[in-house]
């Protein structure tokens, strides 16, 4: 589908400030830093999680464990795809049991990815708490899921797409709203 840029929402400076606020909010809510762990959802959630991990290290001098989660296997729409979506790696090197886990994704939209991530985490153990940090919340939820930490709330039309671009994957930090051509 051909898309064009509708609006640029954030540049690298704004993104950095928002990430810093998210890092502080996560620390504020979770006083026992030694119980805290971050889990980034493939692909961009992983990079957002790494940045938050680095910011926490700068702010507090503590190293919060971070894991990588691929939710493909737990999707509820596998039968709807013409071809199977690529499975990426999951790597969680710590026990989730009794930890305060913060799930991190770049965009929360329908909530179905988060539902799949929750199912996947519970296969690994029973965390003490499971929280959700989303860099962008673009609305249109189809499930009763609400982020605990929200970088920015961005009301969008359904046909639009929020594109969180990151240095690590896209060579540049910015957030764009895309819309189909012809609108």
């Amino acid at each position: 589908m051909d898309e064009k840029i509708k609006a640029k929402i954030m540049d690298d400076k704004k993104m950095k400030r928002t990430l810093q606020r998210l890092a502080i909010e996560i620390l504020e809510r979770n006083r026992e830093a030694d119980k805290l762990a971050l889990i980034g959802i493939q692909t961009r959630g992983v990079h957002v999680a790494r940045r938050i991990q680095a910011l926490i290290r700068e702010l507090e001098g503590v190293e919060i464990p971070m894991g990588i989660l691929d939710i493909t296997m737990f999707r509820d729409d596998l039968h709807k795809h013409e071809h199977q979506p690529a499975v990426k790696k999951t790597q969680i090197d710590f026990a989730v049991e009794d930890r305060d886990i913060v799930l991190i994704d770049d965009v929360v939209f329908t909530g179905r990815t988060i539902r799949a991530a929750m199912d996947s985490i519970f296969e690994l153990g029973r965390p003490a708490t499971l929280q959700l940090a989303a860099f962008i919340d673009r609305g249109h939820r189809e499930l009763p899921i609400c982020p605990d930490f929200r970088g920015k709330y961005l009301p969008t039309a359904r046909r639009e797409r929020v594109k969180v671009m990151l240095q690590e994957t896209d060579g540049k930090d910015q957030v764009l709203i895309m819309e189909p051509k012809g609108f």
Binding site: D70, T72, M73, F74, L78, A86, V87, K88, K89, T90, Q91, D119, S120, E123, L124, G125
Partner: peptide
Amino acid sequence: ETILETAEAFIEVSSRDVKKVPA
């Protein structure tokens, strides 16, 4: 290569306590 890359991702499933995914 697609099969091998997918297999790499599945290795982790077998290292879990609950060795099952609903795919």
